[in-house]
Simulated assay, not measured.
Amino acid sequence: MSYPTIQAYQAYTNGTEERLREHPVLDFLFHHQESFDHGNMKTEPYTVFHTDDFTFTKTDGTVLPPGEASWKGWLEGYVFFTEHLHEARYVCVYERDGGWEMVGVANIYCNLPVPGERTKTDLSGRKWDIVVPGSFIFNCVQDSAGPKGFKVKSMTLFGDRVPAVAEMIKRGMVKPEDLFK
């Protein structure tokens, strides 16, 4: 029995490899990641990179209301970190419902505001406090007002917060009993 298929571009990667920027959606999403990790995305209007009705789905399955609430909900996931880096490991991009969907896997490196030993190493050799494995689904649409002609319409995050919470407990940032409130 044959199954209906669609064309997809997929690749394993070691971070933001130049070869992957040939695909216009990946080029936009790598620019999105770099602007979030190192740029001014957090201080400019969310609509620069995202549609007005951008929707964020948290790792626990909660779908936040579209727009500003989803944008703020995504940012809340990073409030405990002084800096972070998303290091892509796998990407798969395909057309869907008149737009593009990208499924990706990344290592998310983070530093905490409380000092401690940095034991996690990214591909460039830099040491970090935490590494969290994560997966993302981005739905992108063409939009001439967006960087590189695209904007993110929705994003779903799948992540294991245990490494981050364990390190925050170890450094006294969170008490175990606070987790059950």
Rank of each mutant, 00 (worst) to 15 (best):
P4I: 07
I6A: 13
I6Q: 13
I6P: 00
Y9Q: 02
Y9C: 00
Q10K: 08
Y12L: 12
Y12S: 08
N14G: 04
E17Q: 15
R19V: 10
L20A: 08
E22G: 12
E22Q: 14
V25A: 15
V25Y: 07
V25L: 01
L26C: 07
L26V: 12
L29C: 03
H31S: 13
H32N: 12
S35K: 11
S35A: 15
S35M: 15
S35G: 15
G39E: 03
N40G: 06
M41W: 12
T47E: 15
V48I: 13
H50D: 04
H50W: 02
F56D: 06
K58P: 05
K58S: 14
D60E: 12
G61M: 07
G61Y: 04
V63L: 09
V63C: 08
L64A: 10
W71F: 15
G73M: 06
E76F: 10
E76A: 14
F80A: 14
F81V: 01
F81G: 04
T82H: 06
E83V: 02
H86M: 03
A88F: 07
Y90L: 03
V91T: 08
C92Q: 09
V93A: 09
Y94C: 09
E95G: 09
E95R: 11
R96T: 01
G99E: 12
G99N: 08
V105N: 04
V105D: 06
N107R: 13
N107H: 13
Y109A: 04
N111W: 11
P113W: 03
V114A: 14
V114E: 15
V114K: 14
E117N: 10
E117P: 10
T119V: 14
S124P: 00
R126H: 12
V132I: 15
P133K: 05
P133T: 01
S135F: 02
F136M: 05
F136T: 14
F138R: 05
F138M: 05
N139E: 15
V141N: 01
V141R: 09
Q142G: 06
D143V: 00
P147S: 13
F150R: 00
K151H: 07
V152Y: 05
S154P: 11
M155A: 10
M155F: 08
T156P: 00
G159R: 12
D160G: 05
R161A: 07
V165S: 01
M168Q: 14
M168D: 06
M168Y: 09
I169K: 05
I169E: 04
R171P: 06
V174P: 04
K175P: 01
P176R: 13
P176H: 03
L179Y: 00
